[in-house]
Design a binder for these strands. Sequence first.
RNA 1: GGUCCCGUAGCUCAGCUGGAUAGAGCAUCUGCCUUCUAAGCAGAGGGUCCCAGGUUCGAGUCCUGGCGGGAUCACCA
Length: 595
Amino acid sequence: MIEQLVLDTLLNAVKELYKQDIPSKLAQVQKTRPEFEGDLTIVVFPLLRTSKKGPEQTADEIGNFMVSNLNEVTSFNIIKGFLNLSISSKYWVKFFNDNSKLSTFGKHPKKKLAPVVVEYSSPNTNKPLHLGHIRNNLIGWSIAEIIKNSGQEVAKVNLVNDRGIHICKSMLAWQKWGNDVTPKASNLKGDKLVGDYYVIFDKKNKEEIKALVETGMEEDEASTSTALMREAKEMLKRWEDNDTTIRELWSTMNQWVYNGFDSTYSRMGIDFDKVYYESSTYLLGKKLVDQGLELGVFFKKEDGSVWCDLSDDGLDEKLLLRADGTSVYMTQDLGTAQLRYDDYHPSKLIYVVGNEQNYHFDVLKLILKKIGKSWADNISHLNYGMVELPHGKMKSREGTVVDADDLMDEMYKTAKQTSEDLGKFDDLSIEEASSLYNVLSLGALKYFILKVDPKRTMTFNPAESIDFNGNTGPFIQYTHARIRSIVRKSKALNLVLDDSISHDYVFETKEKSILKILHDFPEITLQAATSLSPALVANYAYELAREYNQFYHEVMILKEIDSEKRNFRISLSEFTGKTIKYAMALLGIQVPERM
RNA sequence: GGUCCCGUAGCUCAGCUGGAUAGAGCAUCUGCCUUCUAAGCAGAGGGUCCCAGGUUCGAGUCCUGGCGGGAUCACCA
C-alpha cells in the first residue's frame, strides 16, 4: 500500500532530518485533493514543533527526502503547509497490471480465527415483515458478506421468536374467530393470515378493556385483567407444560408463518446458515437462571419471580422469570447466547438488532458476565437506527406500517414502468424482462437502505417512490451495463490485443482518478468490516460509477485511434465493471449485463 | 427525571484517526442524443454545519454547557 510506504518514509525522514522520533499520529498522509497537483499529501503543520522551522522549509526538506528515498515519489509541490507528492505512473501501471485481471480483487486472505456469528432478522411469528425488518435483513446479510470477504469465517444465523405471549394471542384469536381458516382457503400468505389474528386479538381485547374501565376499573388494572388476556396467559402456561392440543395448533400456525417468511426472504435474497428457535433455547435459559440462583447472583422474590439486581452497575433490577415460572425475553436470550457459544465458540458474536434494544443488550452482557461467561465480551450489538416515515414512526394502529412484500411489489411496478417508458427491451422475452425488473427494483430498494450509515435513523417517504436516477442502485447498475456493452463490442471487434500497459504510460486525468478509486477498494472493504458499515461499500460503488460515467463522456474508448490507449481504456472499463459488480454483490445487489 | 443516540442545502444523505474554498443526489433553472446505452454528462442557484463557550497553528469533526428531536428505563419482544 502506497500510503503506508509514504507514512513509513515520513517517519524516517523526520528521524534523519531532525533526529527525533515522533508519535505516529503526527505523521499525516492523505489523498491530494483533485484541484491540486499530486497524489498524496503530507500535512506538515504537526511536524513544525519537531523541525523548528517554517512550514515551507520543512515541507521542502521532507519533499526532497521523499524523492531521493522512495522510488515511487517522483516530484512534489508545496502549497501553504501541504506537501503534495506525485506518485510515479510506474506504480499505477503496476497496480493496474497486477490486479485488473484478478477475479478476486478486493478479497482478503483467510484468517485463522474462530468464526464470527452474525444474527439478523429475528422475526416474531405474529407479524409479517415490514420495512424495519428489511433494513435489518439487508444490513445483517451484507455485513456478514463483508466480514466474510475480510477473511473471517462467518455463520449467518436467524433467531425466530416462535413462542411467548404474543403468539398465544394470535392462536387464541384464531381459535375463537377463525372458523378454521387456512392460508390456502383464504388465499393469504401464512404470515399475513396469522398477523391478522394478532390484530383481531388486540381489537377485541381493547373492547374488553374499555368495558372494564366503564365499570370503574383503573385502566392499568383493566389492561391486565381482561378475560382474553387471562386466556392467553393460560394458553402460554399450557404451552410451556407441553399441552398436546396447544402445541399442535402452535406448530401448524407457525408453519404457515414460516412459509410466508421464506417466500419474502427468498425474494429479497436473504439466507441463513442456521436458524434458531426460541422454543428450543428458552429451557436452556431457565437452566442458566437456576445456575445464577445457586451462584447467588440472582434472587427470588416472595411471589416466586426471579430477578437480577444490577443497581451496582447503574441499572435497575431485571426480571428473569415470571412468578408463574414462565420465561421472558431475557431468559430465552441467555439460553440462545449460550447455545451459540457452544455451537461455534465464536471470536465475535454480532447481533443486528435495532437501537431501541440497546438497554436489553447492555443487560444481557452484564448478566452473562455475572454468571461467569467471560465470552460475553465478544458480544457486539450492531444497533441500527429505525426507519421512520416523514411524520414519525410506523404505527400499525394507524395503518402506516410499510409491508415488505407490498413495498417490493411497488418497486417492481415502478421498475417495469420506467423500463417500458424507455422502451429498450422490446426484444427480451417476458421471463427475461421480468427478471431484469426484479434485479432493478431490488437494486433500487437495497441501495436506498444500505447507502445510509446503519447507526442513523433514516426516513422513508411512501408518497415518493424510491428513485431510479442519481445516487441510486439503478444508476450503478446502469453504469455496469454500459461497461458490459463496451466490453462486448470490443470482443466482437477483436479490439483488445494486449491486456497490460507499458510502465511509462501517460495517464489522462480521468483514467488516473478511476485507477485511484479502484486502488482504494480493498481498503474500503476492510473498513466496512471493522466499522460494520455496508454504507461505506455502497458509497464507494456510487463514487466509482460516477467517476466512470464522467470518463465515459470525456474520452473515446472503442473509437480511440491509439491502440495502447484504446486497449487500456477497454481494460480499465472491464476492471471497473468487475469491481462495481463485486462491491454490489457485497450488498446483495445484482447487476445486469444490459439495461 | 436517569441513561444513550441524533442535529450538515428546501428534501434525502456523504464528509476516514481534527487539515486546503464543507460534498453528492432529488427538486428548480440552462445546455448536450447523425459518435461507444441520455436510468447519462456539463453548468447555475441554494449553507450561521442547532446555539454559546473551550482545547488547537487549524474544529462540521474533540471537550463543557444550553436548545431541539428520538430511543429506552415493562411479569411486551
